[in-house]
Nucleic acid binder design. Structure first.
Length: 324
DNA sequence: CATCAGGGCCCTG
DNA sequence: CAGGGCCCTGAT
C-alpha cells in the first residue's frame, strides 16, 4: 500500500450555477453506491479529481439557494496552482457538476403534472451529474455489469488500491483514480487478480484507447445524442445499457431513455403504474408520451426521490429489488 | 451440497 | 437475431 499524499495547498473559486440548481440533490445521488473517491454530507461534497496530470481534492460547499445558487469550490493540491491552471479547470468543474444546462422549461412545463408535481416540489433544480471523467465513468459502468453492489464496490476498490493513490485533504482521506496509461502498461493477468473477471479485458482495452487518445471526451460532449451513442457503442465492452447511462449521466441528454434493464423495469413498474411488472416497451412508451424530450430527466426525479425516501425509512418492496 | 441467474456484452452460427 | 460463455456471488 502506497503512502498517502497530503494536499496542503488550497485555493477557492466560486461558481454561480444557472438556476434552478439544487446542490444536494445534484451532487449526491442516493441511488448510487458509494466509493472511496468521494464523500457527501448535507451542503458539502468532497471528491478527488485528476486534471492536467495533477492529483487534486475538491471540496464543494453550497453557499446559495435553489433560485440563487452559489457554490464555493476549494481546490486542494500538493503544489500551489497557477492562474492558468485555475482558469482551465473552472469550466471543467462547471461541466462535471452540470451547472450551466437549462432546465427551467422542464420545471415550468410539468409544475402541475400528476406524477411530477410532488417530486418537483421536493427536488426542483436537481440535475444529473457526472463528477468523473468519461474514462472514469466507463470504468465504473464496466464494474457495474452483471454484478451485485457488493461485488461492484469490491472491484472498484481493488482497482483504487492497485492503480490509484490515497490523498488527504480537509480531514478526508480519499482515493484518486489513475491515468489510463497506468493500466495500459499493465496486463490482463494483473487485472484478473483483482477479481474483475471478464471485465479485465475490457478495462485493459479501454485504458489503451484512452492512453492513445483514441476517444475524445470533449468532442463527444458536443455531439448530437444519436451520434454520441454510436461512438460509445463502438467501445469494446460498452453496450446499450452503458451507452444509455453515459448519454444521460455524462452528456446530459435529458431525453436519453430508450433502455430499461430488468431490475429497473421492476422499480419503474411500481413507481409509474403501481404494478409488479409492466412490459419494458410499455414503460418506454409511457414516459415518451408523457414527458417527451424531458423523459429521462423526469424519470430521474422520480427515481432519486424514492431512494431519498429510502434513506429515512425502510421501503420493503424496494429493498427486494436492490441487489446488495 | 449443487445449480443457476444476474445492475451486459461479445461472438458465433 | 438467438443463444452460449464469461467471473463471481448470493439465492434456492
Amino acid at each position: 500500500m502506497k503512502k498517502e499524499e497530503f494536499l496542503s495547498s488550497k485555493q477557492a473559486i466560486e461558481i454561480f450555477p444557472r438556476p434552478p440548481y439544487n446542490f444536494n440533490a445534484t451532487v449526491y445521488k442516493p441511488s448510487h453506491y458509494s466509493s472511496s473517491d468521494n464523500y457527501y454530507e448535507k451542503n458539502k461534497y468532497w471528491i478527488t479529481m485528476l486534471w492536467e496530470g495533477k492529483k487534486l481534492g475538491l471540496k464543494l460547499e453550497d453557499k446559495g439557494s435553489i433560485n440563487k445558487p452559489k457554490i464555493k469550490v476549494t481546490i486542494f493540491s500538493k503544489q500551489r496552482l497557477n492562474k492558468g491552471f485555475l482558469k482551465s479547470i473552472k469550466p471543467e468543474i462547471e461541466y462535471r457538476f452540470n451547472t450551466n444546462s437549462d432546465i427551467s422549461e422542464f420545471i415550468k412545463k410539468f409544475k402541475n403534472d400528476t406524477i411530477l408535481k410532488k417530486v418537483l416540489k421536493k427536488w426542483k433544480g436537481m440535475k444529473p451529474v457526472c463528477a468523473n471523467s468519461l474514462y472514469e465513468s466507463l470504468i465504473i459502468l464496466f464494474v457495474l455489469q452483471n454484478a451485485t453492489v457488493r461485488r461492484t464496490v469490491q472491484m472498484l476498490e481493488n482497482l483504487f488500491k492497485k492503480y490509484g493513490e490515497k490523498v488527504r485533504f480537509d480531514n478526508k482521506e480519499l482515493s484518486t483514480f489513475w491515468l489510463p496509461q497506468k493500466i495500459a502498461d499493465s496486463s490482463e493477468e494483473e487485472l484478473r487478480a483483482l477479481k474483475l473477471g471478464y471485465r479485465a479485458k475490457m478495462i485493459l482495452r479501454l485504458s489503451k484507447q484512452f492512453a492513445n487518445k483514441e476517444i475524445d471526451e470533449f468532442k463527444l460532449r458536443k455531439m448530437p445524442k444519436e451520434q454520441a451513442k454510436k461512438e460509445i457503442l463502438k467501445i469494446y465492452g460498452a453496450g446499450p445499457a452503458t451507452a444509455w447511462y453515459v448519454l444521460f449521466e455524462d452528456f446530459y441528454h435529458y431525453d436519453a431513455f430508450e433502455h430499461v434493464s430488468p431490475w429497473e423495469q421492476k422499480i419503474y413498474s411500481k413507481l409509474l403504474f403501481n404494478k409488479k411488472l409492466v412490459p419494458a416497451r410499455k414503460i418506454l412508451k409511457f414516459v415518451d408520451h408523457k414527458w417527451g424530450k424531458w423523459k429521462m430527466l423526469a424519470s430521474h426525479y422520480i427515481w432519486e426521490d424514492i431512494f431519498w425516501q429510502r434513506k429515512n425509512k425502510k421501503i420493503d418492496w424496494l429493498e427486494k429489488e436492490i441487489r446488495l
